[in-house]
């Protein structure tokens, strides 16, 4: 088996070291960079993200991440979004009453969750559909979430012939929200697999194996 070359897109968001080390732990070769060509040509691209939707979008656009992601997906090349890196893949995000454009890879709006306690912070279960690949080994496990926003209605139909039908995994915190999506080359998790202990590493390993 050849080592997969992964790029973590470095656009100034949060703790990237953990994602790097977790992917290395499961056998990938990882670069943290904002270099356009490296990000475009890697075997897979990881789009991290913490904090505000609008700030992450600004950061991604500054490094032309929108173009990188679009070109990769058009060519069927893998992209993994994590946390806000998942949220920005949707069409819009609403924060403090203001709507911001996302990358629009999926229709849908990222909104503040309605729950007694926010952020949704800690280890929670998810509801995994039978045809999930990345959860195959870890469907009953808990994963580490930390977010106040999410996608609560998700009507994904394949709008791109390169993609298979989306497989949506749901979580619940006050309301149901999208915990993960597997959609051909585009995979994303609301939780942090790199912070989810052995279960998270196993999920990352399954993703690597699927590349």
């Amino acid at each position: 088996m050849t080592t997969q070359d992964i790029v973590i897109l470095d656009y100034g968001s949060g703790n990237l070291r953990s994602a790097q080390r977790a992917l290395e732990k499961v056998g990938a070769s990882v670069q943290v960079t904002a270099d356009f060509d490296e990000a475009l040509n890697a075997d897979a691209l990881v789009v991290p993200g913490v904090g505000a939707f609008a700030a992450c979008m600004r950061g991604i656009l500054e490094v032309r991440g929108d173009i990188i992601i679009d070109r990769r997906l058009t060519a069927g090349r893998p992209v993994l979004g994590i946390c806000v890196g998942m949220q920005v893949l949707f069409a819009h995000g609403v924060e403090h009453g203001t709507m911001v454009d996302g990358l629009g890879q999926w229709p849908g709006v990222v909104e503040r969750l309605v729950a007694p306690i926010l952020p949704h912070m800690g280890w929670d279960t998810v509801r995994v559909p039978a045809d999930s690949a990345i959860f195959a080994e870890v469907a009953g496990e808990r994963f580490y979430f930390v977010h106040s926003y999410g996608v609560t209605t998700c009507d994904l139909t394949p709008h791109d012939l390169n993609r298979r039908s989306p497989v949506v995994t749901w979580g619940t915190h006050g309301t149901d929200f999208v915990a993960a999506i597997e959609n051909g080359p585009l995979v994303a998790t609301q939780f942090h697999p790199e912070k989810s202990g052995a279960a998270g590493l196993e999920l990352l390993n399954s993703w690597l194996q699927s590349l």
């Binding site: 703790n15 953990s18 080390r21 977790a22 732990k25 930390v146 790199e194 912070k195 989810s196 590493l201």
Partner: peptide, 11 residues
Amino acid sequence: VQRTADCVFIP
């Protein structure tokens, strides 16, 4: 912190 993050994959 760096050395911890290199080998501990929880928050």
